[in-house]
Design a protein around this nucleic acid. Sequence first.
DNA 1: AATACCCGCAACCGCCACTCG
DNA 2: GCGAGTGGCGGTTGCGGGTAT
Length: 313
Amino acid sequence: MGRSPCCDENNLKKGPWTPEEDQKLTDHIQKHGHGSWRALPKLAGLRRCGKSCRLRWTNYLRPDIKRGKFSSEEENSILHLHSILGNKWSTIASHLPGRTDNEIKNYWNTHLKKRLIQMGIDPMTHQPKTDLISCLPQLISLANLKELLQHTQLTQNLQLLNLFQQPGAITNYYNPKLATNLMPNNQEQNPYFSSNYLQEVGDQERVEMSNFFPVENNGGSQQLQQQITFINNVKTNGDDDQQVVGQCQMGLMSDKSESATWNHLPSLVDNSGSNHTNSQENSSGGGPVVSSNYWPEFLFEDSFLDENLKEIC
DNA sequence: AATACCCGCAACCGCCACTCG
DNA sequence: GCGAGTGGCGGTTGCGGGTAT
């Protein structure tokens, strides 16, 4: 502690390396090995500090460095390892031959992190955020219904959101072979719901969570059932190539109806832009697949809410 | 054509862990 | 056991090229 930075010593050179410096460093290490990094600059005839030489060698000049774009396999590995290890760049780099920790760190900060954020994934926790956020207007719109507000459902809806934001609630979105795209990863009974269950039908897996609450209507009372469904469609494209596309739907149902028909809301609308649709992401080699959908704005208009409330109640 | 802005990446900085005398 | 020296790691900066206005 308290040592002055080595590059401050003897007016040593800083900044970008010249081809001549690179050549001197490479020649020296190939002939003698790096030995003591601190002693190396003098021996190699460089006006650099040992630390700078080491960095230049390990991050750029080393002969076994793989340069060029990261493959989708490498991207998936980084995402997977980062979800486990966090910002342990050197450990992550040890699993990717030819890649340096600095390169991986840069790639994470400039590409992967932004991509996760765009997709609504918290890059630190690797938990989805966008779908929760997209649920929020819907939940709020429901809460805005006078009847629901009267029965303080907003509180319960916010508890629901909070539940899905808990660490570990949703995992493995990046792994195209694991059908846990948007689903809670444990099947334990959810305390915020009166019922929830998992079912598998063909290539589809779904988790349904239901919640019942009373509604006063024209002097009478009835039960409304609120259901949120997480659906994973597992598509098989070839030998071993599976992709998972997640959906989240929410519906209301009245207990007055004998047939108990669901009043499911319209399908989510993709808002990821034409260049970032799930299908394009998939076709590029099985990259992360996470829904970035939202409910259309008309859902929140008074006329729509009035109409649907009549149908339900 | 000029300027502003954005983005990617190489390099730096400070801290920590390990080694060795 | 202790402290100095060294290597390594992760966060951050700033330059240069590309793009938008």
